[in-house]
Write a protein that binds this DNA or RNA. Structure first.
Lengths: 155, 155
DNA sequence: CCTTGACCTCAATTTAAGTTGAGGTTTTAT
DNA sequence: ATAAAACCTCAACTTAAATTGAGGTCAAGG
């Protein structure tokens, strides 16, 4: 079982898993991706400093906001693994997230408002419907519908 | 080259691709997933009725809103492939989307407001920070941090 | 001491949403 | 009639984010 010392200076991978709610396999994975770090015991086992918990919390939070791990790597770059984030670090980082979040909210809100129009008009057959396929009447133009300027992910 | 008749009653896969902006390979894929349908020519080539364009527009729009294809399959279920969606169909469907969208916006907004608190306080070290790891002080409780009630995707 | 549970690495598998390519057939334009 | 452009199927590959398993090592308690 995981040892339950009062305040261990370093945490084993199992302890981190337990406290963060993140599976060991994912911790290994994050480490392989360079998102978190740990030093090793004499017997080659991972030993985490306490602030990895914060880092993981940040990581998972950003992830739940829809950021990909590579985006998160960027977000976390100013806070190198193993370094205790300063208040300024966090402020800067979180401000960046806020901006990204706001952009996302704005996009969704705009879309929602367009949909409100649809609800009133049953408009998929109308010309001004945001869900309408603009290219369907162009038939011979270069490129087809660019739906709402938000095509799903490419290659 | 794709034929460019004035108003063909049926569309080839290439025409649908061109008009919808969706690659042929993706159309095949959507068909394999049961999301769209087509009948076949005497020579076994796909022939789409016009309303497939609308269906695809709906599909891609929902996708851009962050719905997965299996969620979209649910959203489209009331409109069987090949059937012309009625205004009522569309209204009901879009109303459902709106609700899902609103939920997403609400979640993000709430999160953003929490982050605003963080920006002021540099609070990752504070007890009331939404980014704080609640389990870190529980150390012996059942399950670890459930970050903001929004854990990233499971298995 | 010595067993058992926690760890280790590395490779393979999973799911989603497609894309790419091989090898062969159908349509269409000349 | 024929050649080029589209189309067909099927299988394999891609990326992200992990999980699962095999085979072996470490550490803590009885």
């Amino acid at each position: 079982m995981a040892k339950a010392t009062d305040a261990p200076s370093f945490l084993s991978v199992g302890e981190v898993a337990e406290r963060s709610g993140v599976p060991v396999s994912a911790l290994h994975f994050y480490e392989a991706k360079g998102l978190i770090g740990a030093h090793r015991s004499s017997g080659n086992q991972r030993r985490y400093s306490r602030d990895v918990l914060r880092r993981i919390a940040i990581l998972r939070t950003a992830q739940s906001l829809g950021f990909s791990l590579s985006e998160i790597a960027g977000l976390l770059k100013p806070i190198p693994p193993g370094r205790q984030p300063t208040a300024a670090d966090v402020r800067a980082m979180v401000a960046g997230w806020r901006a990204a979040l706001q952009a996302r909210i704005d996009g969704l809100t705009e879309l929602r408002d367009k949909l409100d129009g649809c609800i009133g008009c049953g408009c998929l057959s109308h010309d001004d419907c945001p869900l309408r396929n603009p290219a369907d009447r162009l038939a011979a133009s270069g490129r087809g519908a660019v739906l709402l300027g938000q095509q799903p992910p490419g290659p």
